[in-house]
């Protein structure tokens, strides 16, 4: 196990080096002049020239690459062209805000996805199965941006149950501000005993989290169902049934454990899906997280920020898959 973790860690470092190299040359080949972007609007040529020297863009590409990689070791990703702040600082500030959404969405998607999948498989062919099938088909078919808008329209505009957007009501931001301890607003408000803000923040999170978890939940439920049904067709289940083991044990103990391995893989993959979905959800719900930041970087071709975002997503992706691989090893001893 330790060896496996070490291998994964080396793999992660290698991936980050390859990724940062790729991203570096990729962003340098982007259309547009970075120095001009940095200064913004109506800049004079000499201003742009000064910015070019300031950013080191006048040096040859190889020198720039060396400097970039050198800085990266010290977690220095350069200055964002858009916010004019260090990218690393920006990321550290935004990551917790998004991860609050992502982790909730992941947890709910995994929990309900697996539950629905198991229920559908258990009642295979019944009305319950049909209903879940329709429901999950809809869940995987609805475009994320459309779902987010629908949620706003229905739950804010029509029912008025949940706030439209943002992270906390503006009046609370002054009366009961969130102290920045961990960056996770729910945790912070709880630690500080700021319950008013805690409930307000939780309230604001409901719709974005819903928008995020629906799609992955559908995918996980469908996969769980088919994986379980596949397992229940196997020889060893027939043999166990022939040796008089009750259907309940057969299904929930023997079958489920066998079926779980592909499900865990998909849960790991859906981390990437949810991260991608935050681009849209955070934009629509005006949530100041990493998705919003990434999207703004894409739209303004802020290449230093793009590099940072790409590296971050790569890291998260590898970590999530490693965690899922560890779980799969626990569940399924065949994986070596």
């Amino acid at each position: 196990m330790l060896l496996f973790l070490c291998k994964r860690f080396v793999g992660l470092i290698a991936l980050l080096i390859v990724l940062s190299t790729l991203v570096f040359f990729f962003t340098r080949s982007l259309p547009g002049d970075a120095a001009a972007l940095y200064i913004g609007g109506n800049a004079k040529p000499e201003q742009i020239e000064r910015a070019r020297i300031e950013l080191g863009l006048d040096k040859p590409l190889v020198v720039q690459y060396k400097r970039y990689m050198g800085r990266l070791i010290h977690a220095d990703m350069g200055i964002s062209l858009r916010t004019h702040r260090p990218v690393f600082k920006d990321l550290m500030e935004k990551i917790p805000m998004s991860f609050e959404l992502v982790l909730w969405a992941l947890f709910i998607a995994a929990f309900f996805g697996v539950s629905f999948g198991v229920i559908a498989a258990y009642f295979q062919g019944s009305m319950i199965d049909e209903t879940i099938k329709w429901f999950t088909s809809a869940a995987v078919s609805i475009p994320i941006f459309f779902l987010a808008l629908l949620l706003q329209l229905f739950f804010f505009n029509y029912l008025g149950w949940f706030p439209l957007q943002g992270r906390i009501d503006s009046f609370l931001e002054f009366s009961n501000p969130i102290q920045n301890i961990t960056g996770f607003s729910m945790v912070d408000t709880l630690i500080a005993g700021n319950f008013k803000a805690f409930f307000n923040v939780s309230w604001h999170m409901v719709l974005p989290v819903t928008a995020l978890f629906v799609g992955p939940m559908g995918i996980i439920a469908r996969l769980t169902r088919s994986s379980l049904l596949d397992v229940m067709d196997q020889d060893y289940i027939l043999a166990a049934r022939a040796s008089g083991i009750s259907e309940g044990v057969l299904f929930f103990y023997y079958g489920l454990r066998n079926a779980l391995s592909p499900v865990l893989t998909v849960i790991g993959l859906s981390v990437a899906l949810i991260l991608l979905a935050t681009f849209y959800v955070e934009m629509i719900f005006n949530w100041p997280g990493i998705g919003y930041y990434s999207l703004a970087a894409i739209m303004s071709l802020d290449y230093t920020a793009l590099m940072g975002v790409t590296l971050m997503i790569g890291t998260v992706y590898v970590i999530a898959n490693t965690i899922m691989d560890i779980l799969r090893r626990i569940v399924d001893p065949r994986i070596k």
């Binding site: 060893y236 166990a240 065949r334």
Partner: peptide, 11 residues
């Protein structure tokens, strides 16, 4: 059954 290995639960 016929295939002894596949009739033993692998996990």
């Amino acid at each position: 059954f016929q295939n002894p290995q596949s009739s033993i639960n692998p996990v």
